[in-house]
Design a protein around this nucleic acid. Sequence first.
DNA 1: CAGTATCCCCCCTGATACTG
DNA 2: CAGTATCAGGGGGGATACTG
Lengths: 162, 162
Amino acid sequence: MKTKSFSDMQCSIARALDHVGSWWSLLIIRDAMMGARRFKHFQENLGIAKNTLTSRLTDLIEGGIMEKVPASDGYAHEEYVLTERGRELAPVIIALAQWGDKWVAHEKGPSTVITVRESGEKLPRIWPRREDGEPMALKDVGMRRANGAPQKIWHEEKEDPS
Amino acid sequence: MKTKSFSDMQCSIARALDHVGSWWSLLIIRDAMMGARRFKHFQENLGIAKNTLTSRLTDLIEGGIMEKVPASDGYAHEEYVLTERGRELAPVIIALAQWGDKWVAHEKGPSTVITVRESGEKLPRIWPRREDGEPMALKDVGMRRANGAPQKIWHEEKEDPS
DNA sequence: CAGTATCCCCCCTGATACTG
DNA sequence: CAGTATCAGGGGGGATACTG
């Protein structure tokens, strides 16, 4: 995602997107979260071209999201594992998966199943909550631009004709 | 995001990504959530080319994420608003914003502030939780491929040499 | 103001062949 | 197996000019 890098935007979302890079990145991260560690695994499971995979992995490493480590089994090859920064993308992945499940499910059903590991139950929907832990209605979530950033039109209510 | 559409993958995440389209889509959705409704608003705030914006908006409408409605103020122009399907992308947006805030913040601080509207407090971190509502450690979240889908390497523990 | 129409560029991606 | 190198394409994106 170049041509107009998002990284200089003073917006957490844009900056996050800039780091995550391209769509492949999310899928690579997803696979890594499911246990993929080796080049071959990513390549086979994603059906991605090798050079593209190399490129994406490099980006992810430069972004501090993954890192290259010696093989866990003592073999010569190296492996790719998520850093903490990368692992903390889990809420993004989960939110995407749950949205996809609900709104654009495949006819054969979801392929990625996210669970509470100990109980084996499906993970409850990830959702904004109040301080007390209660899930809240989306309309009760406020989003606005902060002080420093240019405030243009909006701000809470939208009924201004501009 | 073509060349290899993700939509035929039996993976909720890939399918979600396919619908959301390109990175611009997320930023458009973000702006819509903050109250932007008019072509001009999106264009000015995002600094996106007009034809590109048209293209992205069209995609979002075709994907059922936004819809075109008559202007709320009675003017001739039309406006773009999120559908329920689109609004439910909020967890994705929020997760991205919070990740960006934490890991790749702009030196001037975050520009997008997400709050609990009534209290005005910063929204608690969106995070996977158990059935009882307690937030859980990421390592306790399970991700695996479902029955129908090809199960390759992973599955819970990763210590298999393949 | 809200687009549409052109033109062009360039990055992402894929395919193939090659190397340690 | 894990990449790197090279070549080619396609689409997303930008700039500008034009229209209702």
